[in-house]
Amino acid sequence: MSHKIKVLIPGPIKFNFIKEGLEYYSKKIKPFIDLEIIAPKVKTEKLNKKLRLQKEEEILKKYISKKDYLIILDEKGKIFKSQELAKYLKNLIENFSQIAFVIGGPDGISENFKKEAKELLSLSKFTLNHEIALLVLLEAIYRSFTIIKGIPYHRE
């Protein structure tokens, strides 16, 4: 069974250093699992916060299937240490063929969308720019695979 991780974020991705980092970590993750970063263009500048969140949700949901184990990144979600995240990710991969992580835009994620997630996960107690959060998530996924496979990268 082939496994896949999708990471969804409202796009487009604006910062070049983020694009470079995404390319770097995507290449490093590729030997371990099929990874797809989805950043559809979402135009919401002229909308109020509630409508922006609804529009982002509507667009991102187009890329989520019933097969996806949906995890939404949220400041109130579970926080793992690197070893714990590796164990968590290994368990997910053993039990689900498709995992979808969703990162909200500048205003976060709608409460409705959060309720549809299987789990909420937090990368930090800090509030992070959504593009930075995407890069941090990819590094954490790569680190998890190196821990799972016993590849020297993570240090305790």
Rank of each mutant, 00 (worst) to 15 (best):
F32N: 10
K115V: 04
N129A: 09
P10T: 03
I79G: 01
K50G: 11
Y63I: 15
P106A: 07
K4W: 09
L51V: 05
P12E: 01
L35E: 00
S65L: 05
V7K: 14
K81W: 02
I37V: 04
L135G: 07
Y142R: 13
E45W: 12
L73Y: 01
E56C: 06
K19T: 14
V102K: 03
Y88G: 13
A140K: 12
H130T: 14
P106V: 07
S26N: 14
I71Q: 06
G108T: 10
I64A: 02
I72H: 02
K78N: 15
L135D: 00
E20N: 14
I141E: 00
K149N: 05
S65K: 12
N129F: 06
L73C: 11
F17Y: 15
K49V: 15
L53P: 13
I38R: 09
F126A: 08
E119C: 03
L47F: 12
G105M: 11
N129R: 14
E36G: 06
Y88S: 03
F80Y: 03
F15T: 15
K115Q: 09
E94L: 13
K19Y: 08
L51S: 07
K4Y: 02
L73T: 09
L53M: 09
G104E: 00
T146D: 04
Y88M: 05
I109L: 04
Y153N: 03
P12Y: 06
P40Y: 10
E156T: 15
L73M: 08
E23V: 12
H3N: 09
T44A: 13
I13T: 06
F126I: 08
S82D: 01
I79T: 07
Y88N: 04
E56H: 07
H154R: 03
R155H: 15
P152I: 13
A133R: 12
Q83W: 08
E56G: 08
R52S: 04
E119T: 14
E57W: 05
L53Y: 03
I147G: 05
E56K: 10
L92K: 11
S124I: 14
I148K: 09
I148N: 00
I99F: 07
I13F: 07
K41L: 01
K61S: 12
I9L: 08
Q83D: 10
D74R: 10
F113R: 09
Y63T: 15
Y24V: 08
R155P: 05
G21R: 12
F15P: 10
P10D: 02
K67I: 10
K87A: 08
K14A: 01
G77P: 13
L137V: 04
P40H: 11
V136P: 01
Q98I: 09
I59T: 08
R155I: 13
T44F: 05
Y24H: 12
L128E: 00
F145Y: 04
N112E: 02
E94K: 15
E20I: 14
S144K: 11
G150L: 00
Q54C: 08
K28R: 10
S122M: 02
I72P: 11
Q54M: 15
V7P: 06
